[in-house]
Amino acid sequence: MPSETPQAEVGPTGCPHRSGPHSAKGSLEKGSPEDKEAKEPLWIRPDAPSRCTWQLGRPASESPHHHTAPAKSPKILPDILKKIGDTPMVRINKIGKKFGLKCELLAKCEFFNAGGSVKDRISLRMIEDAERDGTLKPGDTIIEPTSGNTGIGLALAAAVRGYRCIIVMPEKMSSEKVDVLRALGAEIVRTPTNARFDSPESHVGVAWRLKNEIPNSHILDQYRNASNPLAHYDTTADEILQQCDGKLDMLVASVGTGGTITGIARKLKEKCPGCRIIGVDPEGSILAEPEELNQTEQTTYEVEGIGYDFIPTVLDRTVVDKWFKSNDEEAFTFARMLIAQEGLLCGGSAGSTVAVAVKAAQELQEGQRCVVILPDSVRNYMTKFLSDRWMLQKGFLKEEDLTEKKPWWWHLRVQELGLSAPLTVLPTITCGHTIEILREKGFDQAPVVDEAGVILGMVTLGNMLSSLLAGKVQPSDQVGKVIYKQFKQIRLTDTLGRLSHILEMDHFALVV
């Protein structure tokens, strides 16, 4: 994948999101292997301009796509893939009243899908469409860049269908997702969380590099694949309309690839034109409109599966009536509230959605109805927002919020430890010299600072030695090549209790 991002070429006709291997024109390309080798690009942008032909009021008969309808489940399912879809609609009884809503608040519980998330729908649909058009064949390999849930859905379907599955996901995604993927037989590649989507090191860039190296491999490409919004247009939206008897006044959905909100909203605009569509985008993402909503100094966020630093091709923002931004604290607070007060075992993005819903639905009156999409299960986040310690460490809970008995030293300040200034190293000294210094002084790690004293990161003896043994660096290389740029900081005025929580999850903390 090139470091400079080429513009994806656009073909003359058809839909841009065809499933299957992508040609340089962004659509299915038939021909000899030699032709494909000559024409197939190194990668295709996940934010390529959409060429979708959908228009409100256009006859369904003019759609270029294969459409399906929700099917009634048999008493005995032939395999677990038949437990994807037909998820329950559940009334939220307490939270709406707590925040003064007059309307009825309903939750579409997508964590009841077989793999635990709304992404099971698009995973199965992308595979079925690729099999139907002859792209996927027995023994082929599926590769997908994902925040985890699409990966789980694909790995689940691949396990049943017999495909090899490789999932490329950023490091910030939970260990629970990784464990589930491994249990399903998927191979996992992790990428830096802070890598831009168009960087060769991003999950998108690495996935395309693997595709170019592995024979008979395919990126189904949830960011561009029409099967993504079509899955929701054909099934999720129809289920909502049936469950609500066609009567709903507002739908609120958090947005990642945009397939969920695009597919549902398009069908609702056709069948229930008075329904307002509300999009939820986390602070630090750029999906919301108008652009002024996205202006923030924050560039990272903890909530998973929603928000991006690019506009995915499948996201149709014209069908969203209003956007709201959400933050991590309210997302996790509301997710825990949904679990504790409503018994809905949902993930953090569901918290984002409901946090926005109780604001947006203030305009609705008694007798009206708001539906929220709860995308995934708490299963993926047992060591994250479900953990009091994690919430404390991230600053989303305060010590006084917890009532468990603490040891005698818990409320003492870090400054009472009488710490001395640490050994520091410059980023320009060599790895070999740094190892000598650390061994001589008896230290395992040291902060790396520039000549102005600005902290650049941390270097550890173990990481340097393993990097040297693996051949990633040489003793003569500058130590700046092996620094940890993500590390926890703590102030002298913070409590030892807070430091204790940090050290339970990290090997060190830097006192500043």
Rank of each mutant, 00 (worst) to 15 (best):
V118C: 07
M173F: 02
K94R: 12
G256I: 00
I127D: 05
R182V: 04
A237N: 06
L220N: 00
T53Q: 06
R276D: 03
L230K: 09
M173W: 00
S199K: 06
L181N: 00
G116C: 12
K94M: 12
V160E: 09
E37K: 13
A71C: 03
G134T: 06
E40K: 13
E201T: 11
K75C: 11
V160Q: 13
H232C: 00
E239L: 03
P49K: 09
E270P: 04
G14T: 10
Q243M: 07
T5N: 12
S199D: 15
R121A: 03
L77F: 15
G274V: 04
M89P: 00
K247R: 13
A60R: 11
G263D: 00
D140H: 04
I122N: 00
R45F: 05
P6L: 15
L42I: 12
G205K: 07
V118G: 06
R45M: 12
H218V: 12
A38N: 09
C52Y: 02
G256V: 00
C52H: 03
M89K: 06
F112N: 05
L154T: 01
T235A: 09
G100I: 02
Y223M: 06
S174L: 01
G258P: 00
C244K: 00
L248T: 10
T193K: 09
E201W: 11
G205E: 07
I80P: 02
L77W: 05
R51P: 07
I188V: 09
K83Q: 13
R45Y: 02
T53S: 09
L181T: 03
I219D: 01
A265Q: 07
E37H: 08
T87H: 06
S123M: 01
P16W: 04
M173T: 07
G26F: 12
P74M: 14
G258V: 00
A265W: 06
G96E: 10
S123R: 06
L101K: 03
L81Q: 07
E144V: 07
E213S: 06
K271L: 10
K98P: 10
A60I: 11
R209P: 01
M250S: 00
F112D: 05
R132F: 07
T262C: 09
K39C: 06
G96S: 10
L136W: 05
E40P: 10
G96I: 08
A207D: 04
I166C: 06
N93Q: 05
A157C: 09
G31R: 10
N225Y: 00
L248N: 01
V206H: 00
H218G: 01
R164D: 02
D120N: 06
G139A: 02
E4I: 10
T53A: 08
E9M: 03
P59H: 09
D86Y: 11
A237H: 06
P64E: 08
P88K: 04
S73V: 13
A195V: 15
I166D: 04
E4A: 11
S199R: 07
P170N: 01
D140G: 08
A237S: 08
P6S: 12
I44V: 15
R125W: 12
E176M: 03
S19I: 08
P192D: 05
K36V: 06
I188Y: 05
F197W: 12
G85V: 10
M173R: 06
I142N: 02
S254C: 15
K247N: 15
K137W: 05
S50A: 08
K177A: 02
K83H: 10
G85F: 07
M173G: 03
K267I: 14
Y163E: 01
P21N: 13
G26M: 07
C103G: 12
M89F: 08
Q242A: 05
S50I: 08
L124T: 10
L28C: 09
P229H: 01
G96L: 05
E9N: 10
S27Q: 11
K269M: 07
T53G: 05
T193S: 03
N225Q: 03
I76P: 12
G31D: 13
L106M: 14
I219R: 02
D35K: 05
T236F: 13
S175Q: 12
T260C: 11
A183F: 02
I219H: 03
T257R: 01
N225G: 01
P16R: 01
E29F: 13
I95F: 13
L154W: 00
E239R: 07
N194E: 10
L230V: 12
T68E: 10
H66K: 04
F112H: 00
K177W: 00
D238K: 10
D245Y: 08
H66N: 06
K97T: 05
H22P: 02
L156K: 00
K75D: 02
L210W: 01
G258D: 01
